[in-house]
Design a protein around this nucleic acid. Structure first.
Lengths: 265, 265
DNA sequence: CGAATCTTTGAAAGACGTCAACATTGGTGG
DNA sequence: CCACCAATGTTGACGTCTTTCAAAGATTCG
């Protein structure tokens, strides 16, 4: 069996961005085999659902599947966009680095999510850095092929557009929530949103492990504030904390804290 | 000569959203005549540039041009989207109303800007309310026709997508700026952005008149804070204020206040 | 077992929003 | 054309929410 082992750091990033794969012997306990879009169970959810069977078959030859490790960078902000990435398994975060060195998480993507499509359509640069939150499998389709699909398949174009429109609403809702809501409201909204989108782990906690720093970054707080709020809620019995695991124990209360307009974090 | 006089309030909104026009005698000193997309000088800028001549000609029959007065509502949040609106002349603001009754301005659109395309592609509802900031001419194309264009003209689809992608970046940059920046930084960034996008009036002030409330709403501040900051800057000689007219007198200083990452407000 | 990373807590300073009173402006009807 | 009222703008005082800084525990991973 051939295992595909991602390289670390900059080298790995180049590797994945260029659609190359480095093959070595290794101990990664996950088969990083080639995945056919035709077989991909995520088809129904992802934006590829409107592709015709022959279009999917055609993808087989040009797409690649990359295995990335936790903390590995998949692409950097301002890099030239090489194509479209689709998360097959795992979770990644998209963030921007600000002038003062701090980072702002824009989005956390999970299986079936498409990433990189905005730079693809826009000015050809990635707008954010993408980093794996856990070991993940990420498929990649070169942009030439994506453009071809857009021109030949109007439904695909519409789906992609809808995807983007969705992102806007999310970004907009976020900027509104951020502006008009307090730290607590934002954090409550974020936890509810994360629970909804990532589901529950076996112990009932949100199935997404973030450092306090990341959780704070997601909600526009500093780490200390996030910690204080969480511990306050723990004392009130609204959440149960266990390391990075967060379980919402009083959902009603959490919802009332988040406020009405919290459809999206 | 027939003048087209917009109705006020809800009635007017219905009128424009349904693409109907009410024709009456009146004193509006602006000809609200039908404008052909073929002739429209904004063609080069707007997303219609990739339409073929025959497609533009075909638009003639189905599009309409509406004249709206200052403060008039062009469409309401959650209304069903009837089609695409293109500003021919004037300025409008897009805002959301929050549960507490306060409003958050998402965008200010000017001539050649397209509005309503997100609801068109998304769930079919307008995501924001659109209100004229000054007397304006707004063209309207029914959505069926837009979908037709998207299916038949891949370049148009791409252009529309690029437009949307642009909006996202704007929304995202805004949410980042809002989160990580102070009131002053946000206001400074907003003024620079407004100056860049709306240009200068004869007296060197930003060619866009907003109430203090609107200016505050745009930057996520309360009116009082915006006023205090503006007056502070006036004392420091960074801006000159004259009613709603705001002139940036020390651009370098303003830029340094706004901070590095202020490509977009 | 360290070293690095991540988490927690406290104290103090500052930014910003709220409230309330008042000034100014613009538009409307008489 | 003027008076008046509603909308808009201004200012001060005050309280609260957040951030910042600092220092110390806890955890993770090699």
């Amino acid at each position: 069996v051939t295992w595909i082992i991602p390289l670390q750091g900059k080298q790995a990033h180049l590797c994945s961005a260029y659609g190359l794969r480095t093959v070595r012997q290794g101990k990664l306990n996950k088969k990083a085999c080639h995945i056919d879009c035709e077989d991909c169970a995520q088809l129904q959810i992802a934006a590829f659902r409107s592709l015709k069977p022959e279009e999917l078959r055609a993808l087989r030859g040009c797409k690649s599947t990359n295995s990335v490790r936790r903390k590995q960078i998949i692409f950097h902000e301002n890099d030239s966009v090489r194509g479209l990435h689709c998360i097959h398994e795992g979770k990644v975060k998209l963030y921007k680095t600000l002038d003062d060195g701090s980072t702002q998480i824009l989005k956390i993507a999970k299986a079936a999510d498409l990433i990189g499509y905005r730079g693809l359509i826009g000015d050809g640069k990635y707008i954010a850095t993408c980093e794996a939150l856990e070991d993940s499998l990420v498929c990649f389709i070169p942009k030439e092929r994506v453009f071809e699909l857009i021109s030949h398949n109007p439904r695909f174009a519409m789906d992609l557009m809808a995807k983007i429109a969705e992102d806007i609403s999310e970004a907009e809702n976020r900027s509104i929530n951020f502006l008009q809501k307090s730290s607590k409201e934002r954090l409550a909204g974020a936890l509810l949103f994360l629970e909804k989108s990532f589901g529950l782990a076996a112990d009932g906690s949100i199935d997404l492990l973030l450092t306090r720093e990341e959780l704070a970054g997601l909600t526009g707080n500093v780490m200390e504030t996030a910690i204080r709020i969480l511990h306050g809620w723990e004392a009130e019995g609204i959440v149960a904390l266990n390391r990075k695991r967060i379980r919402i124990t009083d959902r009603d209360k959490m919802i009332s804290i988040a406020g009405v307009n919290s459809t999206l974090m």
